[in-house]
Design a binder for these strands. Sequence first.
DNA 1: CCAAAAGTGGGTTGTCCAATCCAGTTGGTA
DNA 2: TACCAACTGGATTGGACAACCCACTTTTGG
Lengths: 211, 211
Amino acid sequence: MTGNERAETGGRPLTRRGQETRQRIVAAAAELMFDNGVAETTLEEIRAAAGVSGSQVYHYFADKQALVRAVIDFQADTVLDAQGDHLDRLDTLAGLRAWRDFLVEHQRRLGCRGGCPIGALGAEVAETDAVARVAAARGLRRWEGRIRDGLAAMHARGDLPAVTDPEDLALAILAALQGGLLMTQLQRDTRPLEVALDAMLDRIEALAATA
Amino acid sequence: MTGNERAETGGRPLTRRGQETRQRIVAAAAELMFDNGVAETTLEEIRAAAGVSGSQVYHYFADKQALVRAVIDFQADTVLDAQGDHLDRLDTLAGLRAWRDFLVEHQRRLGCRGGCPIGALGAEVAETDAVARVAAARGLRRWEGRIRDGLAAMHARGDLPAVTDPEDLALAILAALQGGLLMTQLQRDTRPLEVALDAMLDRIEALAATA
DNA sequence: CCAAAAGTGGGTTGTCCAATCCAGTTGGTA
DNA sequence: TACCAACTGGATTGGACAACCCACTTTTGG
């Protein structure tokens, strides 16, 4: 899922070591951009944080924009990874609640800083770089897909009313999550995230009760 | 609500003309920053768009950061203004639905560009400028307050179950709205906004039915 | 072992832009 | 009419930073 295109147009292969270095650069860039935003992160800082020298960044990326795009794909992978098994257990109410608690606890540990690694990054570059915008949208879609799979299983099992659409429900939950993260970031308080997710899960619980 | 502090610390008064010019600068900055983001907006562009010359920007603002903070307050006023009477009619289900339609239609007219003028701006500077972050949070709180007032009226009237908390409900709705706007911006499609708001309003409708 | 890739450690260039300064004019108002 | 804020229209400085280039060494994979 992470873009493998070389900086140079001729698609010469990357050795394992090359892949690793490239990945180190992307990971370092991701962390710095998460902490300080894209605009406030310089290639020099990234170079130093990744522990590579001189022109290595330009060896792997045509320009900063290309790196930003790689970072977005990287964050999509990382975010889904970090949620681990939780995403496989969204087919019960208990699983959904546990996932909610995990997300809230994660924000608490971060001091409510940074917001969503995909959403915040995407929003910053959305109006400047259409390719990056689409990459961020794609990342959120993958996330949405995992939520939908859980709800669809509930739906198929008959735990949700037949008329409810798991697609819509999943999208609504992710939107509440994104908004909750944004407000939690601005207020430095996990309450918006808690209340937003609880509202959606309470709704699902209510729907489940009628099924 | 918009900050009136002069650039110079000695608080000399602004004449009406001065106030107007200052406002023109803020409005021009707000539009440019909404379209292109803070980092991509130069003071020179703002100066030209506002139709003022040379050092006028620095006559009213100590630096770019001060201008950004003024823009955030300005956008808070503007956003609430733009929703006009809708915000006074959030005490019925019909009023809530009409508000939802207005928001969706507004995004459609904008081509789903820019996201929330407060949220997107706040997120961009949140990790760099704590004062701006707090200003954005304050703007969202005002918005949240208007929603809560409507729901509280329903609650007082007995249209919502006594156990439900209008505060929480309002916060959840605003979070869904923010997340919906963000995803709508990234996907260039109003569906996320529609689905997120509908989920929250359906929930309120269900709660109202049990009251 | 050899060719290509990966990597070092600089230097350089050009541009953009925030921020400052100033000498002078206009305009309102007490 | 005197004063001061508002405003003009520049010039300038200083720094940051993306992007590019190069001579050379090390690593690796076939």
